[in-house]
């Protein structure tokens, strides 16, 4: 039994890895761009999911994303910090902010936490606009194209970060963190009684989530070459972070990634076919998922489709 399980896991995984590594050679620049944008979204989705595992539903990831983006861009502009180091700096600064935010919102439950995260991102927009001497204000900050415009390098970088996120989530699932996060999510008071310190784990989840979200922001600023507050702190970014995991399946590794792939594909299709309000799909997806498949696509897969395959005799 042991060797056949490994075969089932490693073969598809190997094919997937080969495909991902060879991808830039297989497609043109347009698809490569779509892939980079898609992978960036996957990182945001997975990071959001890490935080959500502790029951903290953030609708303000844009705040951390924007901090990462601006840190990287401003450090380049002021001190010529190389972009990749800038992204790292962005990640670290976002993490630092998240510690602060995490402690501040500790006692907020459910929806009040979410509202506060929205307020956080919006407050940042206002602060940014009102302090142009420090932040560049409404005019934004521009940087030269990442890697001189070499999209392949950008792809490999962002792919590496995605791999890092996936690895971290996998490690979380293998460790005691998984139990702690789930217990806190299900019932924080009971978790406390069980000897799990909610503070420690909630802030930790926030930090991990913020690190990758901040890095993604830094990447975004150099890849897109120009950022303004209204774009990077935008609620739309925060919403995108949560629609994908919910669609694909919460609290899983594959869920956020799956959700992102499908939503991005649907989005691009809708954008090319219709002009208007393709964002309407986000709204519709959220409503339908909550009403009819609250465990997302993966839940649907495991609950309805997988059993169909299990009609074979025992394993």
């Amino acid at each position: 039994m042991g060797s056949s399980i490994r075969w089932k896991t490693t073969l598809p995984l190997a094919i997937l890895c080969a495909f991902l590594l060879l991808f830039p050679k297989l497609v043109g620049s347009y698809f490569l761009h779509l892939a980079v944008s898609g992978i960036l979204a996957m990182i945001l989705a997975s990071s959001w999911d890490i935080l959500a595992r502790t029951g903290q539903v953030s609708v303000g990831q844009a705040g951390l994303f924007g901090i990462g983006a601006y840190s990287s861009a401003l450090l380049y502009q002021r001190y010529a910090l190389p972009p990749v180091l800038g992204m790292l700096a962005g990640a670290l600064i976002a993490t630092f902010v998240s510690i602060f935010l995490g402690y501040l919102t500790l006692r907020l439950r459910g929806i009040y936490f979410s509202i506060t995260t929205i307020a956080f991102a919006e407050a940042l927009t206002v602060i940014w606009l009102m302090t142009p001497d420090i932040t560049g204000g409404a005019m934004g900050v521009s940087t030269p194209p990442l890697f001189g415009g070499d999209r392949e390098k950008a792809y490999y970088l962002i792919l590496a970060i995605l791999a890092a996120v996936v690895a971290v989530v996998w490690l979380i699932e293998q460790s005691r963190l998984n139990f702690a996060f789930t217990a806190i999510r299900e019932n924080e008071d009971v978790a406390n009684v069980l000897g799990i310190n909610p503070t420690k784990y909630k802030v930790l989840a926030f930090m991990i989530s913020a690190f990758f979200t901040g890095f993604a922001g830094g990447f975004y600023s150099h890849y897109n070459t120009y950022i303004i507050p209204y774009e990077v702190f935008n609620l739309g970014v925060s919403i995108a972070c949560l629609v994908m995991p919910i669609f694909g399946g919460l609290y899983t590794i594959a869920g956020p990634i799956l959700g992102t792939v499908l939503i991005k594909a649907i989005e691009e299709y809708l954008r090319v076919t219709f002009s208007y309000g393709h964002q309407i799909a986000y709204g519709l997806i959220l409503v339908l998922v909550v009403l009819f498949m609250p465990e997302g696509l993966l839940g649907l897969w495991r609950g309805k489709i997988l059993p169909l395959f299990r009609s074979r005799p025992g394993r």
Binding site: Y276, Q279, G283
Partner: peptide, 26 residues
């Protein structure tokens, strides 16, 4: 969803909000 956890209620009404905004735009 009256008896669902607050997360679901949040997501549903948020989804409704996005849907209606975009419907109005269309």
């Amino acid at each position: 969803i009256l008896k669902d956890p607050p997360l679901n209620q949040l997501l549903l009404t948020l989804g409704l909000s996005i849907f209606l905004q975009n419907l109005a735009m269309i």
